[in-house]
Computed example of a mutant assay.
Amino acid sequence: MTPDSGAPGELVPAATALIVIDVQVGFRDAAHWGRRNNPDSEQNIQRLTQAWRAAEMPMVVVRHASTDPGSPLHPAQEGHQLEEYVEGATALEVVKSVNSSFHGEPDLDAWLQAEGITTIVVCGITTNHCCETTARVGGNLGHRVLFALDATHTFDRTGPDGRVLTADELALATATNLHGEFATVVSTRDLLEAIPRLS
């Protein structure tokens, strides 16, 4: 189960890091990725990043550097670039080539520990790959993980039996897998209402 928060009823302690995962131009490529869900995800991610910056809370931006030269996320491709709305001052930028943000450079877990941060909020792309994997690993490492489901999106995917699961079905499976085991699934609205206000 997920660790308890620092204070009863406190969803977002002041030292909560927003982890913004793989919000990169390459995910615009519908021909490569297929049909997606949640057209509001970008707006929700932007609302969270703006709120974190306004509250002067720590934000980590994670960028995927694919090792496949044909991927839109390969460093040689324009798609490797971050979307403009997540660019700017951040506490840390992590570069990874696998699904987990905890397996990139610099070491995210070591940085969180050094900063005394025990609660993280996960948002970004894609729901059932890098976001879910980061939440799972973060929970296993002992962090309290809040998963902002409506600030993520994903794409339809074909299973080993040839059946296509829609992006919405995959997002529901992620929420079901994570909630109460690796993370607490929350909404952007939940987070914005709970974020500490500057005096």
Rank of each mutant, 00 (worst) to 15 (best):
A65L: 07
I195Y: 07
H143S: 01
E169D: 10
I195R: 08
G79R: 10
G180H: 05
R136Y: 09
A14H: 02
V122A: 02
A175Q: 06
S97Y: 11
M59L: 15
E10K: 10
P75F: 04
Q43V: 12
L73N: 08
D109T: 00
T154G: 14
S66D: 14
L192Y: 12
G124P: 07
A167R: 03
M1W: 02
T158Y: 00
L149C: 00
P39I: 04
T118M: 07
Q43L: 11
V60W: 04
G70H: 12
I21Y: 05
G88A: 09
C131V: 14
T166R: 13
A7G: 00
T133E: 10
L165D: 10
P69Y: 07
T152G: 01
V94H: 12
S97H: 15
R157L: 14
A183L: 02
T133A: 15
V60L: 08
H143L: 14
R47G: 01
C123G: 07
L112N: 08
G6K: 06
L198F: 00
E84G: 07
P160C: 00
V186I: 15
A114K: 12
G9D: 08
V145H: 06
P106F: 06
V62K: 01
A17D: 08
S5K: 00
R63V: 15
L82Q: 09
S199A: 15
A171N: 06
S199E: 11
T188Y: 01
V86L: 03
D168I: 07
E78W: 04
D29H: 03
C130Q: 02
S41D: 07
D4N: 03
L112S: 08
Q24C: 12
P39Q: 03
L192T: 12
R163L: 12
L191S: 05
F102P: 05
G124S: 08
I117P: 13
E93I: 14
L192F: 12
G162P: 05
P196M: 13
G104L: 11
P13Y: 08
L192K: 12
T90Q: 11
P75N: 05
A167D: 04
E105V: 15
H32L: 03
T184E: 15
N44K: 12
E132S: 11
S71Y: 01
A54C: 06
E169R: 05
G9C: 11
L192H: 10
Q43P: 00
A135W: 09
D68S: 15
L178S: 04
G34E: 04
A65W: 05
V23Y: 03
N38L: 06
G162S: 05
T184G: 05
W111G: 01
G124C: 08
L92M: 14
S100C: 09
D190Q: 12
T158M: 07
S41C: 14
T188G: 02
I19Y: 01
D168V: 14
A194G: 11
H179N: 15
V61C: 11
L146G: 09
P69K: 09
R53G: 14
L170N: 02
A148H: 04
E87G: 13
E42Y: 09
D40G: 08
T90N: 11
R47D: 13
D107M: 01
W52N: 12
D68C: 13
G159T: 05
T119M: 10
E10R: 14
H129M: 14
S66E: 09
H153Q: 09
G104Q: 10
E193Q: 15
